[in-house]
């Protein structure tokens, strides 16, 4: 069913939803960007539709909600570990089509990768519903069409904001009652059909061991290993786990997991001081191969969803998208 209403009118529904759900969406944090007087756009709790950043692409992805940067897994008391029991919260997340496809990748990584389900992710995920934000334009560096992630269907509501009005597509019956008496509108989410950039992903059968030793990766030694690409990626899921004892009481502490990045120093450090992939070019190879090769071998689809945030944020102007095209070219040369 489709509806149309003013933003104020929708905020009343937003308020009702807030009673049951924690509502997250991309939010502009004024002057909190990397450079002075620039903004940051990241996923935070929002309390009205005005707070939703609808126009711009966010710098960080919705994975922050389901897989927080830092997450306490256990409380430690002496020798005892006590699992954190999360309250039964329900989540509603505003996101775009690429990011909704990315949730699918997170599900695979956290729930279907090996035989163990990640409890922390699962608890949040099973109580989460999604509101799809229609993309009015394809942003700089987007290549969702190439990755088949420009479309999605597993959302509860779809929205478009235009001329101070909100257009709604309600797919989830749970929300039907909320809109009783609202003005009906024949609206369904439209999807981006073309991006400025096209990316061609290689066939995994064409990727041979020679590619791993190809000199093309040396060009990426200019990577400074900051990890912005990983931290903004909606599908990167690596983390590291640390036990911390509190300064105030050294018998108490927590086991905490924190995002990790395959580009940042120390990612592959092992006991005894062994460390792999010392040069950053090889880290680029490792990441790219996970996104379009290893993951695909395991789950049958590309991990990358073409949001282009890695290209948006790389301080060294390294283009991951161009790198994939280069890999595809190389595989053709070799074939």
């Amino acid at each position: 069913m489709g509806y149309k209403m003013g933003l104020k009118e929708f905020d009343k529904i937003f308020e009702i939803l807030s009673q049951d759900y924690e509502i997250y969406g991309p939010k502009t944090i004024e002057k909190a960007g990397r450079f002075s007087d620039t903004n940051n756009i990241r996923y935070e709790k929002i309390s009205s539709i005005e707070e939703l950043e609808y126009k711009e692409k966010s710098l960080f992805s919705p994975k922050d909600v389901l897989f927080p940067v830092n997450e306490t897994m256990f409380n430690i008391e002496g020798e005892k570990l006590k699992e954190i029991e999360e309250e039964d919260k329900k989540y509603l997340i505003f996101l775009r089509s690429c990011d909704l496809n990315a949730i699918d990748r997170l599900d695979n990584m956290f729930l279907k990768n090996g035989n163990i389900e990640d409890n922390y992710y699962k608890k949040k995920r099973q109580n989460t519903k999604f509101i799809l934000m229609e993309c009015i334009e394809s942003y700089l560096n987007c290549f969702c069409v190439s990755m088949n992630t420009n479309k999605a269907d597993n959302y509860s509501m779809g929205i478009k904001l235009a001329n101070d009005e909100i257009y709604l597509e309600i797919k989830d019956k749970e929300f039907d009652d909320l809109f009783k008496g609202c003005e009906k509108e024949n609206y369904t989410v439209k999807f981006i059909e073309e991006n400025q950039h096209k990316v061609e992903v290689p066939n995994i059968e064409d990727i041979k061991l020679e590619l791993f030793n190809d000199e093309m990766w040396e060009a990426y030694d200019r990577c400074i290993g900051c990890g912005r690409c990983n931290f903004s990626c909606p599908t990167c899921t690596c983390f590291t786990t640390t036990d911390i004892y509190y300064d105030e009481n050294k018998t108490k502490g927590e086991r905490r997991r924190t995002w990790a990045s395959c580009h940042v120093d120390g990612f592959s450090d092992m006991a005894g001081g062994h460390s792999f992939r010392q040069n950053t070019g090889s880290r680029m190879r490792y990441k790219v191969m996970h996104k379009i090769y290893n993951y695909k071998k395991r789950f049958g689809e590309n991990m990358c969803v073409g949001c282009g945030r890695c290209d948006d944020r790389c301080p060294e102007y390294i283009s991951y998208a161009k790198c994939i095209n280069l890999v595809t070219e190389k595989t053709r040369e070799e074939a």
Binding site: I29, K31, G227, W259, S261
Partner: peptide
């Protein structure tokens, strides 16, 4: 300017 997650802000 260095923080990749913008844990630091002005």
């Amino acid at each position: 300017t260095r923080c990749p997650t913008q844990a630091w802000t002005r």
